[in-house]
Structure formats: structure tokens, C-alpha cells
Amino acid sequence: MSSQSAIITDRLTKRYGERVVVDALSLEVAQGEVFGFLGPNGAGKTTTIAMLLGLVKPTAGRALVLGHDVATAPTTAAARVGAMIEAPAFYPYLNGYDNLRVLCRAGGLNEQRIAAALAVVELSERARDKVRVYSQGMKQRLAIAATLLPDPALIILDEPTNGLDPAGTAEIRALIRALAADGRTIFLCSHMLHEVEQVCERVAILKAGRLIAQGRVAELLHQRHGLRVRVEGDPAPAVALVSTLSWVAGVRRDGDVLLIDAPADRAAELNAHLARHGVLVAEIGAQGNSLEAFFLEVTGEP
């Protein structure tokens, strides 16, 4: 484990009775990187974040945030962390500015940072409106502004684009990049896999509390290659024909579609081989090579 790591978890575990929510999770997030933390609903992502913030006590294992043990030095660990957890939570009877003042006072932070934080999320003009009249997107922006108050070295964002329109989502994406360019570490938890793929350098995927994949986005996607073929008529003869090719490592059927474990650049050769044997190809192409496709494959989600 490196002392330069922003987050280190060592066999971090949370159980509620017999139910294991997070199972021996070992992660390392380097300082300055944008790290994607993914998983289906109920995978244990928010519980993990809550353990990193000291809100939930681990059953076993430990977590270090910016080099400080969350269990023994929670205040020091939290000092330079900005966190947005699940849905934004604010006092509805206070305006946006006063909500940030409450957080500044609680953390002993300089209230002069509020104006800059509001400007970053373009909420300065509505800062004096009561939060109860804010739209979901505005609350989301205010929550992001709140994460910026402590001049954070580490920003934890749990679903930051929830409730935002496409333009707002693009702005948040740009904001995340800008924050990362300042040398801050971003720990991003999102269902928007397209967004994660665009901004994250590395990702970890959690399923039922267990880490099932971790690595650089490009490397994870590189592991995945193959061709996707749909033929006219019965696909059974096509499966037999494809299996005879020496450069095909495997083939499986998904309805009338064949998923072939073979280099994507041999699509034309495969098409010709099938045509020579009287099998007509209706569609042929590389299997989806996106983070979303990878995520769906490794998590087994439909």
C-alpha cells in the first residue's frame, strides 16, 4: 500500500446479521486519479462510501482516507474530503447560501469559500432562494458546491448526475475533469457508465458486496473482444461451421445471434466462410466494446 494513496481499504467488510453487504473489499485509489466505483443497485457502493466517511462502522477490515485511519482519526481523515452521498440533503427552510454556511461552521471552514463554490456550480444567482423551491438538479449542484468547501484533496461523488438534464450532466462531467486537473482525487460512483467511461482512468466493479473487476478502463475493455453475427434461418449449422475455424476460440448462441470469441478484424473472412457454405449473414460486427457492455457482462445484469 502506498502512502500516496487517497483511499486504501483493506479487507473492508460490513455485515448486518447474516447478510454481508460489503465483503472483504480491498481497494487502492491513487492521489490525483479519477476512480469509478460501479455496481448494480444493492451492490454495497453506498455502504462502502459511508464506511470511508465514518458514518458506518466496518464489521472487519480498515479504511485509510488520505493516509488517516477512519476508525481512529475520523476528524483528520474528513478534514480535506468533500463528499456527496446519495440524494442531496439540505435544510429546506434555509436558503442555499445558509445551508453551505451551516456546513462551513460545522467543519470550521472559512465561509468566504462559499461564493467561489456556488460560482463553480453556477448557482450564485439562486443562492438566496430557499432550498425547498430548488429543482432536483439545483439541489444536486448545491451538493457538489458543498463538496468543494473544504478545498478537498479527495472528492467522493455518489450519483452526482442524478436528476440532471443532458446539458447539466455534460457540465458536471466537465467540472469533474476540471477538478481532477487541479490534482484532486475523484471517487465517482455512478450508474451513468457512459459518463464514467469518459472521465475515469480506473474503475472497480462491485457485485453483492464483492469486488469482481478492477483496473484501468482501457485494459478492462481490451480483455473483451469478439464478433457478433446474426444469420438467416437456423443458426445451428452456422455454429458448427464457425467452430471448425482454427482462429475461433469459442462460440455461443444468444437466441439467433452467435457470439464468437475471435479477433474483430476477421469479420470479412468469417462472412466469406459462412457464405461459401450457404449460410447467409444478416448482420456482422464487433461485440460491444463499451464499459456498459463490460459491466453488464461481468455483473450478469440483463
Binding site: 459511508a50 465514518g54 458514518l55 474530503v81 460545522a106
Partner: peptide, 14 residues
Amino acid sequence: SWGTLRTLLARAPE
């Protein structure tokens, strides 16, 4: 009820 407790305690954990 508002969920503000976790926001506050994430800032001031004692």
C-alpha cells in the same frame, strides 16, 4: 429525517 445528519457528520465526525 432530512438526511442532513450524515452530511454534517461527514464534515464533523465526532
